[in-house]
Design a protein around this nucleic acid. Structure first.
Ligand SMILES: [Mn+2]
Ligand SMILES: [Mn+2]
Ligand SMILES: [Mn+2]
Ligand SMILES: [Mn+2]
Lengths: 218, 218
DNA sequence: AATTAAATTTAGACAAATCTAAAAATTTGT
DNA sequence: ACAAATTTTTAGATTTGTCTAAATTTAATT
C-alpha cells in the first residue's frame, strides 16, 4: 500500500465509510484538501484492490479489508501519539503532525513493541480509543459537554476538535482530560456555559462546549 | 526534500562524496540498485538545489549543504537504530530496514528528544559513530581485525558488513561489540585466523576478519 | 416534466521518479 | 594515435498522484 492509498482509506473511515454508507467524492476531497477528480481516480484504484466498494456517482465505502487496513493505520497513529507524549514530552497539540508521518512506517514488530513499551494504552492523548492488534475498537461512553443537563457534572474524556489552536486554548484555561467538569449555568442568549473545573469557575462559549467530550458521573 | 533525494544524498556521502572526490553515476546506481540514467536525472536535480556539484561525464560530489544534509539523515538513521535496540529489544540485524524508513521522518524535535531519551549515544549498534546535532562526526580509532599483528589483541568495536546474514553469523559465534578478541595464529594458505573471544577459541575466515573492526589495546 | 443547479466523472496535462534503447563521451588497449 | 570497450548521457516511455476544464449524471426547483 502506498502512503496516498493509506491516507485515503483512513479518511474514508473517519467520514463513516465503515458501515455500508457511501461517502461522496466531494466529502473526501474536502477533508483531504484535494480535488474531487483526484478522489475519483483513487476510488477506482482502491476498488481494484478490494479496499473499497465504489458506486459511480454515489461514492465509496470500505470493504472488510478496507476497515481492517484503516484500523491498523489508526492504531499506529494513536500509539505514536501516546509515545510522543508519554516518552518524549511532546504536548498534545504537537503530536498529530508527526504521527501523520509515523503512521506509515511499515513494521509490525515496531508497532507491537511500542504498544508494549507504553503498557498497552487504551486511549490516545485526545481521548480517542486505540484499536487493538486484532482490530477491536472500544468506543467510550461519552457525550458532548453541551448536552449535559444543568446542573450536573462529568469527567472530561476527549476532544472533538483536535486542532493545535483549540488544544492550546484548553491548556491556557487548565482544561485537561481526566478533570471533573461541573456545568453550573447555561446562558440562553448564546448557549455559553458557566462551568467549574479544577477548582476554578469559568465561562465557555457554545463552540467550546460542543468540542469537549465528558463522561457522565455514575 | 523528497525521500528519493535524501536517499541519493546519503548514498553519495557513504561512497565518499564528502571530499571533493567525484562519485560516478555508475557507482551510485550500483549501490542504490537503480540505473545510471536515473542517477544522471537526479544528479541534475540535486545540482539545481545546490546539494551536489555535478560535472558531466565525471560524477557528483556533495556541497557543504549536501554534507550537512547527509549528516542529518545519518544521524537520524543511527539514533533510530539505537532506539530500536535499547528501548524495543530489536536485534542488531533487524534495525536497518526500519531505520531506513524512520530516517525520513521530518521533526527536529523528535530526533533531539530521541537523542536525549537514549542519553546522547555516540555509536550505533554496528559501531558507527552518530553525528551530533551540529554535525560533528567522531570517527573512531579502529582497524580491521585482519590487519592486527599476530599475536595481539583488540576490542571489537564495529562491523563493516552490516547485512543480517553476517550479523546473525556473529551472534551464533558469540562475537559481539565490546568483547576482547585475541588473534592467535594466521593460516598462510587462506589467511584464516585462529582467535580467542569470550573465553572460546575459534577459526574464522579471512572474509570474516576483513569485516570486523577492532580497536588495538593500548 | 422540464429546466436549472450541483455533484461527479472523463479527458488531457503535468511533475516526480523510474526504465529501455540509442547516442555521445571517455577510457583502455594495442 | 586510433580503434574498441566502457561509461555516461539523452530521448522517449511508464507509473503514481495530482490538477484543470469540459462533459456527464444526479438532484433540486420551478
Ligand atoms: Mn492525530
Ligand atoms: Mn489523536
Ligand atoms: Mn543501518
Ligand atoms: Mn548502523
Amino acid at each position: 500500500m502506498t502512503r496516498a492509498e493509506e491516507n485515503y482509506i483512513k479518511t474514508i473511515f473517519h467520514l463513516g465509510g465503515n458501515a455500508s454508507q457511501l461517502i461522496s467524492t466531494n466529502a473526501i476531497a474536502e477533508q483531504m484538501e484535494t480535488k474531487p477528480s483526484s478522489v475519483t481516480d483513487m476510488a477506482k484504484k482502491l476498488a481494484d484492490k478490494n479496499l473499497v466498494k465504489y458506486v459511480r456517482y454515489q461514492g465509496v465505502s470500505l470493504t472488510d479489508l478496507g476497515i481492517k487496513t484503516a484500523l491498523s493505520i489508526i492504531r499506529k497513529h494513536r500509539l505514536w501519539e501516546v509515545f510522543l507524549v508519554k516518552k518524549l514530552d511532546f504536548t498534545w497539540d504537537e503530536v498529530h503532525e508527526v504521527a501523520e508521518q509515523l503512521e506509515h512506517i511499515k513494521s509490525e514488530k515496531l508497532v507491537d513493541k511500542i504498544d508494549e513499551l507504553l503498557d498497552f494504552p487504551k486511549y490516545d492523548p485526545h481521548g480517542d480509543p486505540i484499536p487493538t492488534k486484532s482490530g477491536e475498537f472500544l468506543e467510550r461512553d461519552k457525550q458532548l459537554l453541551s448536552e449535559l443537563e444543568i446542573p450536573s457534572s462529568g469527567i472530561c474524556v476527549g476532544v472533538k476538535d483536535t486542532s493545535a489552536t483549540f488544544l492550546k486554548f484548553l491548556d491556557k484555561n487548565h482544561i485537561a482530560l481526566g478533570h471533573e467538569i461541573t456545568v453550573l449555568e447555561k446562558e440562553d442568549f448564546d448557549d455559553s456555559l458557566k462551568i467549574r473545573i479544577a477548582g476554578r469557575e469559568l465561562q465557555i462559549s457554545n463552540q467550546i462546549a460542543t468540542n469537549l467530550y465528558v463522561k457522565k458521573e455514575s
